[in-house]
Nucleic acid binder design. Sequence first.
DNA 1: CCACACTATTTAA
DNA 2: TTAAATAGTGTGG
Length: 185
Amino acid sequence: MTYARFHFRTPDGVFTAVFSPDGLLAVRFPPPRPATSKASPEPPGPAPNPKLRGWFNLAAKAINAALAGRALPKLPPLDLAQGTEFHQAVWRALTEIPTGETRTYKQIAARLGRPKAARAVGQACGANPIPLLIPCHRVVAAGGRLGGFSAGLAWKELLLEREARSPRPGHFPIRCSRTNWSSAP
DNA sequence: CCACACTATTTAA
DNA sequence: TTAAATAGTGTGG
């Protein structure tokens, strides 16, 4: 199995996308610290083939849109094989939440025909390997509480706020630029 | 298998 | 604010 990592520089920090041969495997949020200093420079990986280049571009646009609070454009194929059947069912349900809207953990559970599995839904959200693009930040707790977020609640609040105020055709020009390739996961 | 101990929950007391 | 209920998953025997 060969992986490719793709780093996106944004005003919100450096995001990383990890690809398997089957598609997008994971999205990582910027490290808590502003990624200072002397981490060993990434060993450059093999030049990406056209298929990977296409995936990279799709991921870049999607991350760009997500950070702007806009609806997501076409995504690259997602490699969800690491998740259980239940997890994948939850993740698929999350992709059906429209931009700017939210659902509760319980609502997602009900959608899956398991009205009492709210807590398990939360667990599946926490296991979501592709936050931001699989919009687990749109899942909140009942009673208007925020719930949790694997990358930190500040991100969840930020994303929800941007989506909520995202003007119709509104633009929020955030640029992503390719910074580097590598071959390790 | 079985038993527990975890959860980004929810509801009732 | 606390406690109990509840489902899925990982771990240890």
